[in-house]
Amino acid sequence: MARCARGETRYRRMKSGRDPDGSVVISVVVPVYGCDGCIEELCARVRLALMDIHVPFEILLVDDRSPDQSWAKIVAAHEHFPEVTGIRLSRNFGQHIAISAGLAAAKGEYAVVMDCDLQDPPERIPDLYAKIKEGYDFVLAKRVSRSHSAGRLIGAKAYFFLMGRLQKASFDSSFGTFSILSRKVINAFLRFSERERHYLFILGWLGFNAGTVEYDHNQRFAGKSSYSLSKLIRHAMDGIFFQSTDLLKWIVTTGLTFSLVGLISSVYFVCSYFFYGSSPGWTSLFVAMLTCTGAILISLGVLGLYVGKIFDQVKERPLYEVDLVLEHVEK
Protein backbone atom coordinates (compact mmCIF):
# COMPACT_ATOMS: atom_id res chain seq x y z
CA MET A 1 0.00 0.00 0.00
CA ALA A 2 2.98 2.30 -0.46
CA ARG A 3 1.13 3.81 -3.40
CA CYS A 4 -1.68 4.98 -1.15
CA ALA A 5 0.74 6.33 1.43
CA ARG A 6 2.46 8.52 -1.16
CA GLY A 7 -0.92 9.69 -2.39
CA GLU A 8 -2.04 10.69 1.10
CA THR A 9 0.97 12.97 1.57
CA ARG A 10 0.15 14.77 -1.64
CA TYR A 11 -3.52 15.21 -0.84
CA ARG A 12 -2.86 16.67 2.59
CA ARG A 13 -1.12 19.57 0.89
CA MET A 14 -4.10 20.21 -1.41
CA LYS A 15 -7.07 22.35 -0.47
CA SER A 16 -10.55 20.92 -0.12
CA GLY A 17 -12.66 20.39 -3.21
CA ARG A 18 -15.68 21.91 -1.49
CA ASP A 19 -16.76 25.45 -2.23
CA PRO A 20 -16.84 27.82 0.78
CA ASP A 21 -20.56 28.52 0.21
CA GLY A 22 -21.34 24.78 0.24
CA SER A 23 -22.27 24.49 -3.43
CA VAL A 24 -21.31 21.32 -5.28
CA VAL A 25 -20.85 20.91 -9.03
CA ILE A 26 -19.96 17.19 -9.25
CA SER A 27 -21.16 14.43 -6.94
CA VAL A 28 -19.41 11.08 -7.30
CA VAL A 29 -21.73 8.23 -6.28
CA VAL A 30 -20.03 4.94 -5.45
CA PRO A 31 -22.00 1.89 -4.23
CA VAL A 32 -19.70 -0.08 -1.95
CA TYR A 33 -19.85 -3.83 -1.39
CA GLY A 34 -16.84 -6.08 -0.79
CA CYS A 35 -14.35 -3.32 -1.60
CA ASP A 36 -12.60 -2.59 1.69
CA GLY A 37 -9.21 -2.91 -0.01
CA CYS A 38 -10.09 -0.32 -2.65
CA ILE A 39 -11.72 2.53 -0.72
CA GLU A 40 -8.59 4.44 0.31
CA GLU A 41 -7.09 4.29 -3.17
CA LEU A 42 -10.46 5.09 -4.74
CA CYS A 43 -10.95 8.28 -2.72
CA ALA A 44 -7.39 9.40 -3.33
CA ARG A 45 -7.58 8.94 -7.10
CA VAL A 46 -11.09 10.38 -7.44
CA ARG A 47 -10.07 13.43 -5.43
CA LEU A 48 -6.95 13.98 -7.52
CA ALA A 49 -8.90 13.66 -10.78
CA LEU A 50 -11.53 16.15 -9.64
CA MET A 51 -8.97 18.62 -8.37
CA ASP A 52 -7.74 18.88 -11.96
CA ILE A 53 -11.20 20.11 -13.04
CA HIS A 54 -11.20 22.93 -10.46
CA VAL A 55 -14.88 22.65 -9.50
CA PRO A 56 -16.44 21.94 -6.09
CA PHE A 57 -17.20 18.25 -5.63
CA GLU A 58 -18.25 15.59 -3.16
CA ILE A 59 -17.68 11.83 -2.95
CA LEU A 60 -20.63 9.75 -1.75
CA LEU A 61 -19.70 6.25 -0.61
CA VAL A 62 -22.86 4.16 -0.15
CA ASP A 63 -22.20 1.09 1.97
CA ASP A 64 -24.69 -1.56 0.85
CA ARG A 65 -24.14 -3.31 4.17
CA SER A 66 -20.91 -4.91 2.99
CA PRO A 67 -19.87 -7.91 5.13
CA ASP A 68 -16.19 -6.89 5.20
CA GLN A 69 -14.51 -3.82 6.73
CA SER A 70 -15.82 -1.42 4.11
CA TRP A 71 -17.72 0.78 6.56
CA ALA A 72 -14.66 1.16 8.79
CA LYS A 73 -12.66 2.19 5.71
CA ILE A 74 -15.39 4.65 4.74
CA VAL A 75 -15.25 6.17 8.23
CA ALA A 76 -11.47 6.53 7.90
CA ALA A 77 -11.82 8.11 4.45
CA HIS A 78 -14.46 10.50 5.79
CA GLU A 79 -12.08 11.61 8.54
CA HIS A 80 -9.19 12.00 6.13
CA PHE A 81 -10.85 13.61 3.09
CA PRO A 82 -13.20 16.59 3.64
CA GLU A 83 -15.19 15.79 0.48
CA VAL A 84 -16.17 12.25 1.49
CA THR A 85 -19.67 11.52 2.76
CA GLY A 86 -20.44 8.04 4.04
CA ILE A 87 -23.93 6.56 3.75
CA ARG A 88 -24.67 3.21 5.35
CA LEU A 89 -27.85 1.41 4.39
CA SER A 90 -29.76 -0.57 7.02
CA ARG A 91 -29.22 -3.84 5.13
CA ASN A 92 -28.11 -5.13 1.74
CA PHE A 93 -30.50 -3.81 -0.93
CA GLY A 94 -28.42 -4.44 -4.05
CA GLN A 95 -26.15 -2.37 -6.26
CA HIS A 96 -28.80 -0.53 -8.26
CA ILE A 97 -30.82 0.55 -5.23
CA ALA A 98 -27.57 1.66 -3.57
CA ILE A 99 -26.94 3.82 -6.64
CA SER A 100 -30.43 5.28 -6.22
CA ALA A 101 -29.68 6.08 -2.58
CA GLY A 102 -26.49 7.85 -3.59
CA LEU A 103 -28.23 9.87 -6.31
CA ALA A 104 -30.94 10.88 -3.84
CA ALA A 105 -28.26 12.28 -1.53
CA ALA A 106 -26.20 13.92 -4.29
CA LYS A 107 -26.08 17.72 -4.14
CA GLY A 108 -24.16 18.33 -7.33
CA GLU A 109 -25.27 19.78 -10.63
CA TYR A 110 -23.82 16.59 -12.12
CA ALA A 111 -23.42 13.09 -10.69
CA VAL A 112 -20.77 10.59 -11.67
CA VAL A 113 -21.70 6.96 -10.99
CA MET A 114 -18.91 4.39 -10.79
CA ASP A 115 -18.05 1.05 -9.20
CA CYS A 116 -15.88 0.80 -6.11
CA ASP A 117 -13.35 -1.75 -7.43
CA LEU A 118 -11.38 0.77 -9.57
CA GLN A 119 -12.01 -1.15 -12.78
CA ASP A 120 -13.52 2.16 -13.86
CA PRO A 121 -10.53 4.56 -13.83
CA PRO A 122 -11.28 7.77 -11.91
CA GLU A 123 -8.80 9.53 -14.18
CA ARG A 124 -11.46 9.48 -16.92
CA ILE A 125 -13.92 11.57 -14.88
CA PRO A 126 -12.60 14.83 -16.43
CA ASP A 127 -13.33 13.34 -19.87
CA LEU A 128 -16.90 12.52 -18.84
CA TYR A 129 -17.33 16.05 -17.48
CA ALA A 130 -15.89 17.63 -20.63
CA LYS A 131 -18.23 15.53 -22.79
CA ILE A 132 -21.39 16.39 -20.89
CA LYS A 133 -20.47 20.08 -21.03
CA GLU A 134 -20.82 19.78 -24.81
CA GLY A 135 -24.58 19.77 -24.27
CA TYR A 136 -25.44 16.16 -23.47
CA ASP A 137 -27.91 15.24 -20.73
CA PHE A 138 -25.86 12.24 -19.66
CA VAL A 139 -22.73 10.47 -20.84
CA LEU A 140 -21.99 6.74 -20.69
CA ALA A 141 -18.48 5.29 -20.62
CA LYS A 142 -18.00 2.47 -23.14
CA ARG A 143 -15.47 -0.28 -22.40
CA VAL A 144 -13.31 -0.87 -25.49
CA SER A 145 -11.38 -3.56 -23.60
CA ARG A 146 -12.60 -5.65 -20.68
CA SER A 147 -10.86 -7.56 -17.92
CA HIS A 148 -13.69 -10.05 -17.33
CA SER A 149 -13.41 -13.75 -18.17
CA ALA A 150 -14.48 -15.04 -21.58
CA GLY A 151 -17.45 -16.87 -20.07
CA ARG A 152 -18.73 -13.73 -18.37
CA LEU A 153 -18.31 -11.69 -21.56
CA ILE A 154 -20.28 -14.26 -23.59
CA GLY A 155 -22.98 -14.38 -20.92
CA ALA A 156 -23.23 -10.57 -20.89
CA LYS A 157 -23.59 -10.42 -24.67
CA ALA A 158 -26.29 -13.11 -24.61
CA TYR A 159 -28.14 -11.35 -21.80
CA PHE A 160 -28.18 -7.95 -23.51
CA PHE A 161 -29.13 -9.56 -26.83
CA LEU A 162 -32.13 -11.23 -25.20
CA MET A 163 -33.09 -8.02 -23.40
CA GLY A 164 -32.90 -6.19 -26.72
CA ARG A 165 -35.27 -8.71 -28.28
CA LEU A 166 -37.67 -8.49 -25.33
CA GLN A 167 -37.77 -4.71 -25.17
CA LYS A 168 -37.31 -4.12 -28.91
CA ALA A 169 -34.33 -1.89 -28.21
CA SER A 170 -30.59 -2.01 -28.63
CA PHE A 171 -28.45 -2.79 -25.58
CA ASP A 172 -24.67 -2.81 -25.75
CA SER A 173 -22.88 -5.01 -23.21
CA SER A 174 -19.84 -2.70 -23.47
CA PHE A 175 -21.57 -0.15 -21.25
CA GLY A 176 -21.54 -0.34 -17.46
CA THR A 177 -22.54 1.98 -14.65
CA PHE A 178 -19.58 4.35 -15.20
CA SER A 179 -21.33 7.53 -16.32
CA ILE A 180 -22.17 11.15 -15.59
CA LEU A 181 -25.71 12.51 -15.30
CA SER A 182 -27.03 16.06 -15.42
CA ARG A 183 -29.36 17.27 -12.69
CA LYS A 184 -32.31 16.92 -15.08
CA VAL A 185 -31.57 13.22 -15.56
CA ILE A 186 -30.90 12.69 -11.85
CA ASN A 187 -34.31 14.12 -10.94
CA ALA A 188 -36.02 12.03 -13.63
CA PHE A 189 -34.21 8.88 -12.44
CA LEU A 190 -35.32 9.45 -8.85
CA ARG A 191 -38.98 9.50 -9.90
CA PHE A 192 -38.82 5.77 -10.60
CA SER A 193 -40.28 3.71 -7.77
CA GLU A 194 -40.06 0.10 -8.97
CA ARG A 195 -37.98 -2.23 -6.84
CA GLU A 196 -36.70 -4.38 -9.69
CA ARG A 197 -34.48 -1.82 -11.35
CA HIS A 198 -31.45 -1.72 -13.57
CA TYR A 199 -29.49 1.51 -13.84
CA LEU A 200 -28.81 1.32 -17.59
CA PHE A 201 -32.33 0.20 -18.49
CA ILE A 202 -33.82 3.18 -16.67
CA LEU A 203 -31.49 5.56 -18.48
CA GLY A 204 -32.41 3.89 -21.76
CA TRP A 205 -36.12 4.29 -21.01
CA LEU A 206 -35.70 7.95 -20.09
CA GLY A 207 -34.17 8.77 -23.42
CA PHE A 208 -32.65 12.27 -23.32
CA ASN A 209 -29.54 13.23 -25.25
CA ALA A 210 -26.75 10.74 -24.50
CA GLY A 211 -23.03 10.96 -25.23
CA THR A 212 -20.30 8.33 -25.11
CA VAL A 213 -16.70 8.23 -23.92
CA GLU A 214 -14.52 5.17 -24.56
CA TYR A 215 -12.11 3.77 -22.00
CA ASP A 216 -10.10 0.68 -21.08
CA HIS A 217 -11.57 -1.50 -18.35
CA ASN A 218 -8.91 -2.09 -15.68
CA GLN A 219 -8.20 -5.08 -13.50
CA ARG A 220 -9.80 -5.04 -10.07
CA PHE A 221 -7.55 -3.16 -7.65
CA ALA A 222 -8.09 -5.52 -4.70
CA GLY A 223 -10.31 -8.40 -3.62
CA LYS A 224 -12.73 -10.26 -5.86
CA SER A 225 -16.12 -9.55 -7.35
CA SER A 226 -19.15 -10.02 -5.09
CA TYR A 227 -21.14 -11.20 -8.12
CA SER A 228 -20.94 -14.97 -7.93
CA LEU A 229 -22.36 -17.12 -10.75
CA SER A 230 -25.62 -17.62 -8.85
CA LYS A 231 -25.99 -13.87 -8.23
CA LEU A 232 -25.28 -13.09 -11.88
CA ILE A 233 -27.92 -15.60 -12.97
CA ARG A 234 -30.43 -14.19 -10.48
CA HIS A 235 -29.67 -10.66 -11.65
CA ALA A 236 -30.10 -11.72 -15.27
CA MET A 237 -33.41 -13.46 -14.49
CA ASP A 238 -34.72 -10.36 -12.72
CA GLY A 239 -33.78 -8.26 -15.73
CA ILE A 240 -35.36 -10.64 -18.23
CA PHE A 241 -38.55 -11.24 -16.27
CA PHE A 242 -39.27 -7.90 -14.65
CA GLN A 243 -38.02 -5.19 -16.99
CA SER A 244 -40.58 -6.07 -19.64
CA THR A 245 -43.91 -7.90 -20.03
CA ASP A 246 -42.96 -9.22 -23.47
CA LEU A 247 -41.99 -12.55 -21.92
CA LEU A 248 -45.66 -13.06 -21.06
CA LYS A 249 -46.50 -12.50 -24.73
CA TRP A 250 -43.93 -15.12 -25.66
CA ILE A 251 -45.63 -17.56 -23.26
CA VAL A 252 -49.02 -16.86 -24.87
CA THR A 253 -47.49 -17.39 -28.32
CA THR A 254 -45.94 -20.67 -27.17
CA GLY A 255 -49.28 -21.80 -25.74
CA LEU A 256 -51.05 -20.97 -28.99
CA THR A 257 -48.40 -22.85 -30.94
CA PHE A 258 -48.82 -25.96 -28.77
CA SER A 259 -52.60 -25.69 -29.14
CA LEU A 260 -52.32 -25.44 -32.93
CA VAL A 261 -49.96 -28.42 -33.08
CA GLY A 262 -52.35 -30.37 -30.84
CA LEU A 263 -55.33 -29.53 -33.04
CA ILE A 264 -53.53 -30.56 -36.21
CA SER A 265 -52.32 -33.76 -34.52
CA SER A 266 -55.86 -34.55 -33.36
CA VAL A 267 -57.23 -34.17 -36.86
CA TYR A 268 -54.44 -36.37 -38.21
CA PHE A 269 -54.98 -39.16 -35.67
CA VAL A 270 -58.77 -39.14 -36.14
CA CYS A 271 -58.38 -39.41 -39.91
CA SER A 272 -55.71 -42.07 -39.48
CA TYR A 273 -58.06 -44.11 -37.26
CA PHE A 274 -60.87 -44.16 -39.81
CA PHE A 275 -58.69 -44.84 -42.84
CA TYR A 276 -55.95 -47.05 -41.42
CA GLY A 277 -57.20 -48.21 -38.05
CA SER A 278 -55.36 -47.61 -34.77
CA SER A 279 -51.63 -47.15 -35.16
CA PRO A 280 -48.74 -47.45 -32.69
CA GLY A 281 -47.28 -44.26 -31.24
CA TRP A 282 -47.62 -44.38 -27.49
CA THR A 283 -43.99 -43.32 -27.01
CA SER A 284 -44.41 -40.15 -29.07
CA LEU A 285 -47.70 -39.46 -27.31
CA PHE A 286 -46.03 -39.84 -23.91
CA VAL A 287 -43.20 -37.49 -24.93
CA ALA A 288 -45.72 -34.96 -26.21
CA MET A 289 -47.63 -35.10 -22.92
CA LEU A 290 -44.43 -34.53 -20.93
CA THR A 291 -43.44 -31.64 -23.18
CA CYS A 292 -46.81 -29.95 -22.91
CA THR A 293 -46.97 -30.50 -19.15
CA GLY A 294 -43.48 -29.02 -18.75
CA ALA A 295 -44.43 -25.98 -20.85
CA ILE A 296 -47.56 -25.47 -18.74
CA LEU A 297 -45.66 -25.70 -15.45
CA ILE A 298 -42.96 -23.29 -16.67
CA SER A 299 -45.63 -20.84 -17.82
CA LEU A 300 -47.40 -21.04 -14.46
CA GLY A 301 -44.07 -20.54 -12.70
CA VAL A 302 -43.31 -17.40 -14.71
CA LEU A 303 -46.79 -16.06 -14.03
CA GLY A 304 -46.28 -16.80 -10.34
CA LEU A 305 -43.03 -14.81 -10.35
CA TYR A 306 -44.79 -11.84 -11.90
CA VAL A 307 -47.59 -12.05 -9.36
CA GLY A 308 -45.03 -12.20 -6.53
CA LYS A 309 -43.24 -9.12 -7.81
CA ILE A 310 -46.54 -7.30 -8.17
CA PHE A 311 -47.29 -8.21 -4.55
CA ASP A 312 -43.94 -6.78 -3.44
CA GLN A 313 -44.52 -3.59 -5.43
CA VAL A 314 -48.07 -2.87 -4.27
CA LYS A 315 -47.00 -3.03 -0.62
CA GLU A 316 -45.25 0.28 -1.39
CA ARG A 317 -42.41 -0.26 1.01
CA PRO A 318 -39.52 2.20 0.71
CA LEU A 319 -36.74 1.23 -1.68
CA TYR A 320 -34.15 1.43 1.09
CA GLU A 321 -33.51 2.65 4.59
CA VAL A 322 -30.45 4.62 5.65
CA ASP A 323 -28.80 3.59 8.91
CA LEU A 324 -26.00 6.14 9.26
CA VAL A 325 -24.74 9.20 7.40
CA LEU A 326 -21.27 10.66 7.87
CA GLU A 327 -21.23 14.17 6.46
CA HIS A 328 -18.95 17.14 6.95
CA VAL A 329 -20.78 20.19 8.25
CA GLU A 330 -19.58 23.54 6.98
CA LYS A 331 -18.98 26.02 9.80
Rank of each mutant, 00 (worst) to 15 (best):
M1P: 08
A2E: 11
C4E: 10
A5S: 04
T9S: 14
M14T: 03
K15C: 11
P20L: 12
D21C: 06
S23Q: 06
V25C: 05
I26F: 04
V30S: 05
G34Q: 10
L42N: 05
L42S: 01
R47P: 00
E58M: 05
D64R: 01
V75F: 00
A76V: 01
H80F: 12
R88N: 02
N92W: 08
H96K: 02
A98I: 02
A98R: 01
S100Q: 12
G102P: 05
E109P: 00
A111T: 13
C116W: 10
E134G: 07
H148Y: 14
S149Q: 07
R165K: 14
S173K: 03
I180D: 09
L200H: 04
G207I: 13
N209K: 15
T212R: 05
H217I: 01
H217Y: 15
Q219F: 07
R220D: 01
S226I: 11
K231L: 15
M237S: 12
M237F: 11
D238N: 15
L247G: 10
S259H: 08
V261T: 06
G262V: 03
V270M: 15
F274S: 09
S278E: 09
L290S: 08
C292H: 03
I296P: 00
Y306L: 02
G308T: 10
V314E: 04
Y320T: 11
E321P: 01
L324K: 13
V325C: 03
E327V: 12
